[in-house]
């Protein structure tokens, strides 16, 4: 059951993200990229398998059965991915603010559609 919920959540996030990414306003593009990166981060996290009550650490004392532990690597990877995508989003926001200031429009092409 929890697999289905997580899979649906990732799918909805990725779908919304993709749709927003293809929109013509820079703000929508930033939101789209953020949603997509949430989806990707969740996806990486799930690649270690969905487990509850399983620690990613080896406790002190005799080593326990590895099957009782959660995979620590995806948790480390997702941390790296979160930090990187967060920093890149911050940079992108600065660039789109500069583009807004220089071109006077928030269209991704720097000019409004001609109608």
């Amino acid at each position: 059951m929890s697999e289905l919920v997580v899979a649906l959540a990732i799918g909805v996030l990725a779908g919304c993200g993709t749709w927003l990414l293809l929109r013509p306003r820079t703000f929508q593009v930033v939101m789209g990229l953020s949603l997509l990166s949430y989806a990707v981060n969740l996806f990486i996290f799930c690649m270690g398998g969905l487990r509850s009550h399983a620690a990613p650490f080896v406790p002190a004392g005799p080593p326990p059965d590895p099957a009782l532990l959660a995979d620590p690597l995806p948790q480390a990877l997702v941390l790296t991915a979160i930090v990187i995508s967060f920093a890149m989003t911050a940079l992108l926001v600065i660039v789109l603010l500069a583009a807004r200031g220089l071109s006077g429009t928030d269209h991704v092409d720097g000019r409004e559609d001609e109608r």
């Binding site: 990486i44 890149m88 583009a99």
Partner: peptide, 28 residues
């Protein structure tokens, strides 16, 4: 430069997300 970089950054960020999905699948 700002306008061209905006496209450059968005395209490359999207590509990076694809990279992550691919790497995660292969690790899984």
């Amino acid at each position: 430069r700002v306008q061209a970089s905006l496209h450059y950054i968005v395209v490359n960020l999207t590509a990076s997300l694809l990279f992550l999905i691919g790497a995660a699948l292969i690790y899984g």
